[in-house]
Design a protein around this nucleic acid. Structure first.
Lengths: 199, 199
DNA sequence: CGATAATGTGAGTCGATACTCACTCGCGGA
DNA sequence: TCCGCGAGTGAGTATCGACTCACATTATCG
């Protein structure tokens, strides 16, 4: 079996079609968030979206493509906000810049924690091309590079990877406990990161 | 629907039966590790274990119970080693104690990273009683309590939770990159934890 | 050995689910 | 008004996977 198509077949431009695709993606996200991946069935998605399964398969060649689209959608929005944060951070001192970057990560993850958690797991399981998620770590890497002198680390790629991992897991743990205050969580994470990164 | 049974029906004492259960659990772990939860089918497990599906259902009332047993098995072994580390740490200074505790966590997770990753996800998804995993965080909590004076934190339960989360995610990230050196990973984590915990 | 219990077997059932296809709908232009 | 076509439909199919049960095999003990 060759590389399976994991992207939508058509990019609809007609407003009706756009709305349909939106409805499908929202429905899928909702089910994944509420019930997890085992309950994410194509029939359930179509029903929840208020469209027929036929319509679903008009825009997504298979179920994996649907999941992949959800992942791309989420990490796309993450990339956007992290990229902006990265641009802002460029003119700041290390500590302030780090705080801004962390904030954008925390905000994203705190928005729909359960959904992000399942998507992260699916992302590992699926054979995806490097998408927006990879580009987000590149932003972090660039920031670390800028402050290399301050840092303890040898491998910048690994460090950027670790920073994102730590931020994700601490945000998720906080969310599970019901914490919603971005500032508090952000401060906690920055403290840990300082110890991790600086000498 | 009432609370579904999630434990094995029988505790086999006969040697033959013990061996069968072992084979089933090992097979399930292997499949989960190699192919993830979607490929974990009862038929596949039985085949891989070299027993019939009938035998599988003699010891596990349903598939969830099998997964639950895998989780209990893993977190049971974790608890054992963490509890020992906790006892050792009692007579040590903060830094050394933390190092010992972290080491036991890293060792466990580094043993079969892919398996542990999937099990952690399933653990969230399933309606489980608090098992050995909870007791492991209690050990960490007790250690933190012992050194409360040194620490910055207000909520010890949350802090213990965060420490375990960070350790897990950093170990996992390292494992994904192919790192195998426990000392190196352990040192990195301890550095992050010091920043996180100490004032 | 013979009886009884313990353990193991696997073809078969039944529901669920990914995906197809022949069809309908409705809108924009001639 | 009617045609063409992009969009939508949903009954139907094929497969798969959890689980059952009537039976076979093996261990234990008198």
């Amino acid at each position: 079996m060759g590389a399976m198509a994991l992207v939508a077949r058509k990019q609809p431009v007609q407003p009706r079609a756009r709305a349909t695709v939106e409805a499908i993606l929202s429905a899928a996200a909702g089910i994944l968030e509420k019930d997890g991946p085992t309950r994410l069935t194509t029939n359930a998605v179509a029903a929840q979206a208020g469209v027929s399964i036929g319509s679903l398969y008009q825009y997504f060649p298979n179920k994996q493509a649907l999941t992949a689209a959800l992942i791309e959608r989420s990490s796309g929005s993450l990339e956007k906000s992290v990229a902006q944060a990265g641009r802002d951070a460029k003119t700041m001192l290390f500590e302030a810049g780090l705080r801004v970057l962390v904030r954008s990560l925390v905000r994203h993850r705190l928005d729909r924690p359960a959904l992000e958690h399942t998507l992260a797991f699916e992302e590992r399981r699926l054979p995806l091309e490097d998408g927006a998620a990879k580009r987000a770590t590149a932003v972090m890497r660039a920031f670390l590079e800028q402050h290399r002198g301050r840092l303890w680390v040898s491998d910048l790629n690994a460090a950027a990877d670790d920073v994102l991992s730590m931020t994700r897991s601490l945000t998720e743990a906080a969310a599970r406990r019901g914490e919603r205050n971005v500032e508090v969580i952000e401060q906690r994470i920055v403290r840990a990161l300082r110890g991790f990164l600086c000498r």
